[in-house]
Amino acid sequence: MERKRKTIRYAFQASLPIMAGYIVLGIGFGILLQNAGYSWLYAVVMSIAIYAGSMQYVAVELLAGGASLAAAALMTFFVNIRHLFYGISMLEPYKNTGLKKPYLIFALTDETFLLVCTPNIPGDIDRNGYYFFISLFNQIYWVIGCVSGALLGNIIPFDTTGVDFVMTALFVVIFLEQWESVGKIAKKAAPKNESTDSAAQNTAKSLALRIKNGIITHIPAVTGLAASFLCLLIFGDEDFLIPSMVLISAVLLAARGRLERGEMHD
């Protein structure tokens, strides 16, 4: 019981940034929906059944424009195909999650993925419980945001332009956290020096090794940034996600030997 309480509290604290982001983004969606002439009941149904941030924004346009079902299916596929990566990343962590598993998979949004992909969970926290409560809390924030936006969207008294930057800021923070966590592993992995070398040689050697390890361990992060940016330049902002995913996978597969060798130390 004590462990469960601790887990819930830990998950809640970890989810606070998403609370801010989801309520803001949800309200944005709700206002859009209300302006398109749909009742708040649509916000309830959509935030529970679809539960995908950017796709719901697109969905409002599809609804208002009376899109065909085939067009909507295709659009959804292209907007959400990036979620394939999340599933692949969570195959192992979600392996033994039992009855929680279907909901964990259903609720694996961008933001939930942020919190479950590389968490530093303390030993006294139940890992599966953490996954579950993160997923649940996030969806609750999302539903609250969407519905309140649809109900009272246009009476927000201050200018909220730019408030959605909170999500970008969150991605930056997680990127940094991940960057530093693999950096630590690389430092630990640098082997102890042989005592026969002189001190100066040692430092030079270990520095070179550290730099080399650093470069290797940061390959995934740099690949993600560089490949996506390159594809954005080539394919434009509408179509760059799928080429990015292909390019990222190709580079990471090509670097597999190096990266797996580096990993043996951890």
Partner: peptide
């Protein structure tokens, strides 16, 4: 992938 996705 998690590290690459964040960049994406």
């Amino acid at each position: 992938l998690p590290h690459a996705i964040m960049g994406m």
